[in-house]
Design a protein around this nucleic acid. Structure first.
Lengths: 211, 211
DNA sequence: TCCATACGGGTAGTAGCACTATCCACTACA
DNA sequence: TGTAGTGGATAGTGCTACTACCCGTATGGA
């Protein structure tokens, strides 16, 4: 397979495939002549993985790179690798103001009440506090009663997912399951939530046509 | 309140506040002199709303503008307004390839099985099909059994949310509840899901230390 | 009254990101 | 034998969300 076929299979232009090769996101093909290289199915898969992280996950290229570099480093212990992956999958925060202590305390309280053990410096914890802080600034009160339904929904999903990652037969497959699972099922969940909102809006409209 | 105070309250630079004024995202303040204007608490609230859509929701400025323009148009019927809001809150898709018919059929089947009535051209539906298509390309099989737990979780959350939006006392408040609810609780849910993944990873690690 | 600072309004410039275009000598294939 | 495609390199592009600077004017403390 040459570069044009690789590009077509991955849904990108040849120029873009070259760009990824240059950046080291795609490993070089096997040279068959001074200016001819052969690419295999593993290149196609890698390319699609990159596109999923970029398009579905909306991850910056720099995060994609970090995940792939960790994945390609055979010396990295499994659990460090998963940590790198999970950290880079976090939404890149834009505004990094000083944390709102009330929001942080609120999040701590909820996690305490749920009995969830998570690291103090987890990016997701910071993100959650950031969202709660934004709600506070808009005058919304957010307490455990509001957050718990979300937490319960998230928990039932996450349990299934961690199970699935844990069952992977190989290191590479574990990481892929983690990355793909986190990134695309986040998008899946978001889309389903919007569809569900739409459906309940219709139901409501049917009940109260004047609204 | 003058512009520097407004900017501080909204967590942006004076230059940025001016930029939003120029763009019409913030209504002009009341002129008290040729080059002096007064801003009120409603300006602060509007500014924070803009920042939430941009930072938490990662919406493009153009979508933020569309939502705010619709909100400011008193002639727009309520349910059109909500439609504008919901449409613009959808994640802007990057790669817009030709839809994968198998993925579309899969999504149709799941929605059918769930009995959800949603518009055929709903952006969320398209997004979901796009995610499923990406999974297919990576060799993942996605069927109803996989999607249903996510759908169930999404449904229980959405019901609550639609109820809350419907109870809003005013038009402006309805839209704000919809926008903020959709945008920031999406982030909340994503963060909680990641925290839950972390917690279940820990639990698993405790059970199987060799992993 | 003086004057540093801030103001509003406008135009022009910038940083970062993810590509994209063009060039080159060379190769594969019809 | 010609024409389209190839690997490799360098330079440029388009977009977004700001940011910098300038101007003439107003404010508020010494």
């Amino acid at each position: 397979m040459r570069i044009s076929e690789l590009a077509r299979a991955g849904g990108v232009s040849v120029a873009t495939a070259k760009f990824y090769l240059r950046e080291g996101l795609l490993p070089p093909g096997e040279l068959t002549a001074a200016n001819q290289a052969a690419y295999g199915p593993e290149h196609v898969h890698r390319l699609r993985l990159i596109r999923v992280m970029l398009e579905v996950g909306r991850m910056p290229l720099s995060s994609v790179r970090e995940v792939l570099v960790a994945l390609d480093d055979p010396a990295l212990p499994m659990h460090d690798l998963l940590a790198v992956a999970h950290r880079n999958l976090a939404l890149p925060r834009i505004g990094e103001g000083p944390a709102d202590p009330a929001a942080v305390a609120e999040v701590d309280a909820v996690l305490e009440r749920l009995g969830w053990r998570v690291a103090d410096d987890s990016p997701a914890r910071r993100d959650l506090a950031g969202s709660v802080a934004a709600l506070h600034r808009l005058g919304w009160s957010v307490d455990s009663d509001v957050l718990e339904p979300y937490a319960r929904a998230a928990d039932s999903i996450a349990e299934r997912e961690v199970e699935y990652v844990g069952e992977a037969p190989s290191r590479a497959e574990s990481v892929e399951r983690l990355v793909v699972g986190t990134v695309v099922f986040e998008a899946v969940l978001a889309a389903l939530r919007r569809l569900a909102e739409e459906r309940h809006s219709y139901r409501r409209l049917a009940d109260r046509p004047e609204w």
